[in-house]
Amino acid sequence: MARNVSVQTRIGFTIAAWAIALLLFSPILWVLLTAFKTEAEAIASSPTFFPQTFTLENFGAVQDRSDYFKHAFNSIVVSVGSTLLGLIIGIPAAWAMAFAPTKRTKDVLMWMLSTKMMPAVGVLIPIYLIFRDLRLLDTLQGLTIIMTLINLPIIIWMLYTYFKEIPVDILEAARMDGAELWNEIVHVLVPMAVPGIASTLLLNVILAWNEAFWTITLTSGRAGTLTAFISSFSSPQGLFLAKLSAASLLAIAPILLMGWFSQKQLVRGLTFGAVK
């Protein structure tokens, strides 16, 4: 990366890059700053940059109005629950495809990916009716099941690409050492694949957390996640800009932090290993 350029060029590029980056970041910055302003300051006709009177009351108001903690709890249950469930189903499947491939393995992988391409609206109505009849509408169980199903192909794909990098020799050594399949997976494969499994987990928690089709259409009050929580702010009621910001900040902050940590692995996960 040691390309020789003049300091002037470097300064020019740096300024341009930072300017564009900050422009892209400005909506998030706006949320961050407005969340700590009073409502009056937030809609003032001459806008301020930093909060003039720093306040935390918006966060309390948001909690009172829509119960942030309940929705956040639901988000955590659904995103973490569906990801763990997906890993439990996905790890054995990925083991099979990475280490005992057959002529059909490639077709199976492609087929799994193709289920991900099915547009949600194409199956919304039957799922809605099935859930209604099974009393799964507006439940965390129902939402977790759906989220597991829509993310399972990505989980299997990511695990598959990580597992492929583990030399099969080592698993064979375990077999020679007297390990049955369960021990081979628990004591050898999983510990070796920890980084890959961790980034699979992280990306899928992010995707499930931000999923905003099923979480909105299949919930109404009890099982609402943060996407539903934030959607309840879509119709303005009086002075609400600062509260909206506070609510938004609460909804995105955890995942933004996770995203920053996992951005390196993200590319690989989102392109199904096609770009590394």
């Binding site: 998030i28 992010i206 905003a212 934030i230 909804a251 995203g259």
Partner: peptide, 9 residues
Amino acid sequence: SPFFVMPPV
């Protein structure tokens, strides 16, 4: 960062 912001937000 914007990629991690949930769509409704």
